Simulated assay, not measured.
Amino acid sequence: MPECRNCGSFVTERYVRVFAPPEFDTVRVCPDCEDMVRDGAGVREARSKRV
Results as ranks from 00 to 15, higher is better:
residue 1 M to F: 01
residue 3 E to M: 07
residue 3 E to Y: 10
residue 4 C to H: 02
residue 4 C to G: 03
residue 4 C to F: 04
residue 5 R to Q: 14
residue 6 N to F: 06
residue 6 N to H: 13
residue 7 C to V: 08
residue 8 G to M: 09
residue 8 G to A: 09
residue 8 G to E: 01
residue 9 S to W: 07
residue 10 F to K: 12
residue 10 F to N: 10
residue 10 F to I: 07
residue 11 V to G: 05
residue 12 T to K: 00
residue 12 T to S: 15
residue 12 T to H: 01
residue 13 E to Q: 13
residue 14 R to V: 15
residue 14 R to Q: 15
residue 14 R to M: 05
residue 15 Y to S: 00
residue 15 Y to M: 00
residue 15 Y to V: 00
residue 17 R to P: 04
residue 17 R to F: 08
residue 19 F to S: 05
residue 19 F to T: 12
residue 19 F to A: 11
residue 20 A to K: 03
residue 20 A to P: 13
residue 20 A to T: 10
residue 21 P to G: 05
residue 22 P to D: 08
residue 22 P to I: 04
residue 22 P to M: 03
residue 23 E to G: 06
residue 23 E to T: 08
residue 24 F to V: 00
residue 26 T to G: 06
residue 28 R to I: 02
residue 28 R to C: 01
residue 28 R to T: 00
residue 28 R to A: 08
residue 29 V to I: 15
residue 29 V to Y: 05
residue 29 V to G: 05
residue 29 V to W: 02
residue 30 C to Q: 06
residue 31 P to L: 13
residue 32 D to H: 11
residue 32 D to C: 12
residue 32 D to I: 01
residue 33 C to D: 13
residue 34 E to T: 11
residue 34 E to D: 11
residue 34 E to V: 15
residue 35 D to M: 11
residue 35 D to Q: 10
residue 36 M to R: 14
residue 36 M to E: 12
residue 36 M to F: 15
residue 37 V to S: 07
residue 37 V to F: 02
residue 37 V to Q: 14
residue 38 R to W: 05
residue 38 R to C: 15
residue 38 R to V: 15
residue 39 D to G: 08
residue 39 D to H: 10
residue 39 D to W: 08
residue 40 G to S: 11
residue 40 G to F: 12
residue 41 A to I: 07
residue 42 G to L: 12
residue 42 G to Y: 13
residue 42 G to C: 03
residue 43 V to K: 03
residue 44 R to P: 02
residue 45 E to D: 07
residue 45 E to N: 04
residue 46 A to F: 05
residue 47 R to P: 03
residue 48 S to M: 09
residue 49 K to V: 10
residue 49 K to H: 11
residue 49 K to Y: 06
residue 50 R to E: 12
residue 50 R to G: 02
residue 50 R to K: 14
residue 50 R to D: 11
residue 51 V to Y: 09
residue 51 V to I: 09
residue 51 V to T: 05
residue 51 V to R: 11
residue 51 V to Q: 14
residue 51 V to M: 04
